[in-house]
Design a protein around this nucleic acid. Structure first.
Length: 502
RNA sequence: GUCCCCAUCGUCUAGCCUGGCCUAGGACACCACCCUUUCAAGGUGGCGACACGGGUUCGAAUCCCGUUGGGGACGCCA
């Protein structure tokens, strides 16, 4: 439950409104997912509104497919939005109107410098060892000349005239931050084709949507002073800003595709649980203190504050994610797992009607899943490990054969192993009831009567049952597989060994 | 290069604002042991950090300055 009772009055009366504003030029990156998550946490914490805005002003790179996958990623993480998705491109007229207004008020000006022209000048300055900043070549153009060039159809952009003031704000994560007037240049607001640039569209929309808190990645830190100046010029009080530290790869550089999986849906496909990824992402740069790590969403909402967010970038440690995921898997009821792994089973050709709810083997199947749970780190582990329970069609792993079926001198060679398998088969055939306790007692007394170690029976039994050297407790496997099939597998392994003898 | 940001175990972090309770706590990973038929899980223990240098102070991981190191941004991309 969201702890609204503890919401500070100041925050509530402000009517918190935040937004997540991805550009639809690719998948939902885990960094973007975390930005969305922090916005969501903040909105829920303060009973505010979470707005989703798709920044699709770059018509060349924006795709419908990308919008779809971003929404899909958010939905999977259960990051729900209260408004939107709004599409930024639809605000074109409003963006243009703001630029024109600034132009009319003398806070912006027409710029006829083409991009190649500017590139040339920039390179010249940099070659001379200087630092480039737009040289305001078009700032003082006579009105008549502007008219004439416009009339000639010469393309022109609208540039903001930086007012020569420093821009400072109290960042909710970083604290007081400021940029000197000298480094703030005259940014383009409207391109010569009439389309708005990022900073214009972003500010215009944040004003329009009455955003109170802009929570975004550190990579936007240097956009913030430009935007603050724009708010001022527009006569609107800027929102609060909170800049999140970036998610880093193991080389401490900004996480990107070369570091491996970076999209939210990739983690879904690898078998991570949304709750686990959500929890993990929340802990990247944020800590509720008290050593609390595995938390429910509601606990996170109740504990969340921007002030507790770290200022340092955080390395994405997939091992820890895997661990958290295994913790979440352990909390899953078997029925939930059963539903989740249907696609995996189907792909492996193991899906049968009798395993489903109401089916003859449903209860039994849930027991199998329960037994496999402690060993699973990701969801596909279940289908892999469930195979020997569901079908006789599995192979003996070479390592298991080598280790437990005669390769080790202690076993006394293959003939001895075959003899044990046959003896075990006969012993198990008469065990009543066929329970973990009774089968284990039977095996141990057999071993004792032959003066041999129980392990010499247990390991081959495991290989006979699942084909591997690793499995859940062998007697629970034995009972789950059932007497009839188990005896068959012991015969099969004995025959296999006899056939492959020296 | 310029500007901005950052700096506690290998990694995520607690502590820092409001100096002493810190011989710096927890988690992941790693190692050992216990449990045990295997692998896990679980339990116990271990390894392991305040980047450096100056201040301020009776006292600094905590405050100040500098150095070094790292990152980000410098587009008519977003």
């Amino acid at each position: 439950m969201t702890d609204t009772a503890a919401t500070p009055d100041s925050a509530r009366s402000m009517g918190v409104r935040v937004r997540f504003a991805p550009s639809p030029t690719g998948f939902l990156h885990v960094g973007g997912g975390r930005t969305a998550l922090f916005n969501w946490l903040f909105a829920r914490r303060h009973g505010g509104t979470f707005v989703l805005r798709i920044e699709d002003t770059d018509a060349q790179r924006s795709t419908e497919e990308s919008v779809r996958t971003i929404l899909e990623g958010l939905a999977w993480l259960e990051i729900t939005w209260d408004e939107g998705p709004h599409f930024q491109a639809r605000g074109l007229l409003r963006h243009q109107a703001l630029a024109r207004r600034l132009l009319d008020e003398g806070k912006a000006y027409r710029c006829f410098c083409g991009t190649e022209e500017i590139d040339r000048r920039r390179q010249a300055v940099e070659k001379a060892g200087g630092t480039w900043k737009y040289d305001r070549a078009c700032l003082a153009l006579p009105a008549a000349e502007i008219e004439a060039r416009l009339a000639r159809g010469e393309p022109s952009a609208i540039r903001f005239q930086a007012p020569g003031e420093k821009a400072a704000w109290d960042d909710l994560v970083h604290g007081p931050t400021s940029f000197d007037a000298a480094v703030l240049e005259d940014i383009v607001l409207l391109r010569s084709d009439g389309s708005p640039t990022y900073n214009l569209a972003c500010v215009a929309d944040d004003i329009e949507m009455r955003i109170t808190h802009v929570i975004r990645g550190d990579d936007h830190l240097s956009n913030t002073p430009k935007q603050i100046l724009l708010y001022r010029a527009a006569g609107v009080a800027p929102p609060h800003f909170a800049h999140l530290p970036l998610i880093l790869g193991t080389d401490k550089k900004r996480l990107s595709k070369r570091h491996g999986a970076v999209s939210v849906t990739e983690y879904r496909d690898k078998g991570y649980l949304p709750g686990a990824l959500f929890n993990f992402l929340a802990l990247l740069g944020w800590s509720p203190g008290e050593g609390r790590e595995k938390m429910t969403r509601d606990e996170m909402v109740a504990a969340f504050t921007l002030e507790a967010i770290n200022r340092k970038g955080a390395v994405f440690d997939e091992q820890k994610l895997e661990w958290l995921n295994s913790q979440y898997i352990n909390d899953l009821p078997p029925a939930g797992i059963a539903a989740m792994i249907r696609p995996d089973l189907e792909r492996a050709g193991l899906l049968r009607p009798d395993l489903g709810p109401g089916g003859d083997r449903h209860e039994w199947f849930l027991q199998v899943l329960e037994v496999l749970k402690a060993r699973a780190k990701v969801i596909p582990d279940f289908a892999r490990q469930a195979r020997p329970f569901l079908t006789d069609d599995f192979e003996y792993q070479p390592e298991a054969v080598e280790k437990h079926l005669g390769g080790d001198p202690k076993s006394g060679g293959r003939a001895a192993v075959v003899s044990r398998l046959r003896a075990l088969r006969d012993s198990l055939a008469g065990v009543e009831p066929f329970s973990e306790k009774e089968t284990e007692a039977a095996l141990r007394s057999l071993a004792e009567s032959r003066g041999e170690a129980a392990a010499l029976f247990i390991h081959p039994l495991r290989v006979a049952l699942v084909g591997a050297a690793v499995s859940p407790g062998v007697f629970s496997v034995l009972v789950l597989i059932g007497r009839e099939r188990a005896l068959g597998r012991l015969d099969r392994l004995a025959a296999f060994l006899a056939a492959h003898r020296g």
